[in-house]
Each structure stands twice: as structure tokens, then as C-alpha cells.
Write a protein that binds this DNA or RNA. Structure first.
Lengths: 226, 226
DNA sequence: AATTGTGAACATTTTCACAGCT
DNA sequence: AGCTGTGAAAATGTTCACAATT
């Protein structure tokens, strides 16, 4: 038997999954603008990737387009949303209602992207009871209850670094299997739990490195400053 | 001539650079705790990577440790800071003082990580004059002036999506060559300018995909739900 | 005895080139 | 004629195993 071509059994590379989310964002913009179809070249340019790579990414979902024509915008958008598992809205909790947590909870864009925050939690009694983005902030002690209540499997951690690991442990014990962590610590989790780390300091340091390199040119043995 | 081993001329892979920033964060914690030395195993575990990979990452900087012993914490930390170009503080501007921009500008951790925000800019006159993290918010019209004043080469964009591209264009024209973008759009920039995109929706959608996969098991031709 | 540094094997990801449809 | 879909090639990244060193 040759390798299966059935989209149900084909594995999608992780790098591709991240780009599919970007294509979905671009397609939503095109759909809102009333566009009916789009070519791989235009979509790739809007997403900042190479057109052949985009076609390969989409090919993991099975044939999506029409040769000689392009892709139908609404159909492709639906297909991507289904593949990513955001066809119907998914419930998330957010722990840590400091400035960053409040900013994220208040951003209306998540609703249109397939996520809703059913629980906002904070350890500070002064913040409990506040309403952010239409949801009331509850005490962090309610964590297990909120997760169970809504069958939450995705959480966002925006707590101070020193408590992020213990919050993470509680989330995992409560049944959460996917976490986005904004605290600048590496979370330790058991196998089967996925963590995505977002750290502005790391992003800035990568840029500082690239920036520094731009000012240095190596010719033979000599380092030349332009 | 064989390939150069001179650390000045050796290229460091981008994936490695991102991890070096994480090692730097862990080392700073260890230094603060008074630790003098650390092994690749312990450092790797704290950073969430494989020990052999960590040693290979560090080897791009030239020999860093002592065989049979480990790495000297303060020396390695300094070496990493120098390699990343964050030995002395770098000036950045931040455009867009909404909730997210304010949260980032107010986070004290950047100072200790080698960055200082010398310009906070916003288009809303109601926000201009506010003081966030010790810096006064200025009108976005001052963008070119602030960048020139401090020779800024790194910027953070936290504006609403519709204006992010035009802000980006102005930053690039003013001389900025490195941008972290939090707006959910793909910025178009000329060659020589680096953009790092941070998008919580993309992170959540990747997790939604992985989450969905956990619930599906394929046996032969059959898709089985556990 | 313990731990680093690294070549070699392996895996993944990106790019290319072009066959295959419409 | 134009654009998609994809195998093959190239590049990049990761893991392993072990020699080298203290």
C-alpha cells in the first residue's frame, strides 16, 4: 500500500499549521471585502510567504483550488477553519488579569476567530468582580470549577513569572491540555500537554542580534564596519 | 582552507539565536540565586530543550564550559548577552498605547533585559501626556523625530491592525530596521528589515488544532474516538 | 567519574521545477 | 495561457553517540 492520501489520516506539519492560521486571517479579510477568488500568488504575498510553499501547505488538506483559476475564498476559509478546529467557538480561560491579561481579554477579535473567554481569573481580591470584555473576573480559587463547568481545554497564562508554574500545574490537573504562556518562564508540563511560549524579551533579543549583525561585514579575516 | 572556527565569522542559526535568549533568561535567574556553575543537563531542563542541543547551541560561541565540570554562570551570562547584542541597553520605540502597548511599556522586566523604551507614541490626543513606566506618551507625529533623536533601530508596533502598515512604513523610512508586530496583519517591508510577528490568535489556533488531534486516533482505515 | 564539544545520522522544512487540469 | 498540485532536491534543524578533557 502506498502512503495514504486521505486528508483524515495525512499528518499536517506543525510549521504548516501555524501558517494555515495566517492564511485563515487573510482569507477572512478578503471575504469581508467581498472577494470571490484568489490565486496562490496573491494569498502568499498577503501572508508573507512563498507561493509554492503556500500551495504545498494547502495540499495537506487535499485539493483545494481550481487549476488555471485559483481558490474560492469562502470555501477555502471554511476548509481552513474546519482543519484548525475553530469551526465552532472554543472555550478558554485566562489567568492573570494584570495589564496584559486585561488587554487580551478585552480584545474583541478573538470572538470572530473562534475563541471565547469563559473564565477570567485573578488572585487579587481588588480585581475580582471587574468586568472585562463582558465577562466578570473571578477569584483564582475558582479555577478548577470554571474549567470543569465549561469543559475548557485551552488556557492563557498572563500571571507574574513566580506563580506561573503553580497556576500551570493547577490547570493541567483540572484537565487543560493546551496552554499559551506569556510569563517569562519555561513551564514544565507532562507529556500530552502543549505549551506555546510568547516572550517579548526573546523577540527583542533576536532582533537585537540580527540588528547587530547588519552592522558587521566580514571580508576574509577582517571584520569591517560600514 | 577548512571552514572557519573563529566565533566572529561563524554564523549562528536563527533557531539557535532564539534559544540563546531563553538560556540568558535562565542564567540571569541562576545568577540572582547566587549559583556559580551549572551543567548542560540542568540548564537544558530549565529551558525546556534537549541537553545535546543546548551544548551545540553554545558551541557556536566557541568553547564556553569546562569538561567534567559545567558552565560558569556569570561568565556564560555575559558571553550570551554580548553575542545577542544586549550588553548595553538598546533604545526602542513603541507605537500604539492601547491596553496592550501600555501593558508592554509598563513592564519593568525589559530594563533588566537590555531594552529601554525611549519613545512611546499614540495617535489619540487624549493619551498624549500620560506617563507610562516613567516615560511620557508623545503624539505619533513625533515618530521621525524620536527615532532620529535616539538613533533607534528597534520598534514595537501595538496599533490597531488598519494603521499598522502605514506606521511600519514611517518607521522604516525613519531608519528602523527591526520590528516586533503585535497587530494581526502581515507587514510588508523592504529587504534588510526584519519583522517578528506575535499573534495570540495564531497561537490559540495552533493549540486548537493540536487539541483536536488529541481526541482523534486513526487505526488502519478507521477513525476512532477514545 | 563526570561533563563538554562535535561529527555523523536523522528529521523536518523550504524551495524548485514542471506535470496536470481547466 | 494560466494556475494548481507535487515529487525531487536543497537547506536547515535536531538528535545521537562518543571522543576529548578535566
Amino acid at each position: 500500500m502506498s502512503e495514504s492520501r486521505d486528508p483524515r489520516t495525512r499528518v499536517i506539519p506543525e510549521a504548516t499549521v501555524a501558517r494555515l492560521a495566517v492564511y485563515l486571517r487573510v482569507l477572512t479579510g478578503l471575504a469581508d471585502a467581498g472577494r470571490a477568488s484568489v490565486s496562490s500568488g496573491e494569498l502568499a504575498s498577503a501572508a508573507g510567504v512563498n507561493p509554492a510553499g503556500l500551495r504545498k501547505d494547502l495540499s495537506y488538506l487535499g485539493p483545494c483550488g481550481v487549476r488555471g483559476v485559483g481558490y474560492a475564498v469562502p470555501a477555502l476559509r471554511e476548509r481552513l477553519a474546519r482543519a484548525l478546529g475553530v469551526e465552532q467557538s472554543r472555550s478558554c480561560v485566562l489567568v492573570g488579569m494584570g495589564n496584559l491579561g486585561s488587554a487580551l481579554a478585552g480584545y474583541a477579535g478573538f470572538g470572530t476567530r473562534g475563541f471565547s473567554f469563559v473564565g477570567l481569573l485573578d488572585a487579587d481580591p481588588a480585581r475580582v468582580g471587574d468586568v472585562v470584555g463582558g465577562t466578570v473576573v473571578r477569584p483564582v480559587d475558582d479555577l478548577e470549577e470554571v474549567v470543569a463547568e465549561h469543559g475548557v481545554t485551552i488556557a492563557v497564562v498572563t500571571t507574574p513569572a513566580p506563580v506561573a508554574q503553580s497556576v500551570c500545574d493547577r490547570l493541567v490537573d483540572a484537565g487543560v491540555r493546551s496552554i499559551v504562556n506569556f510569563a517569562p518562564v519555561t513551564l514544565q508540563v507532562p507529556a500530552g500537554v502543549d505549551v506555546r511560549q510568547v516572550d517579548l524579551s526573546v523577540e527583542l533579543q533576536v532582533l537585537a542580534f540580527l540588528d547587530q549583525q547588519k552592522g558587521v561585514q566580514v571580508v576574509g579575516e577582517q571584520v569591517v564596519l560600514p
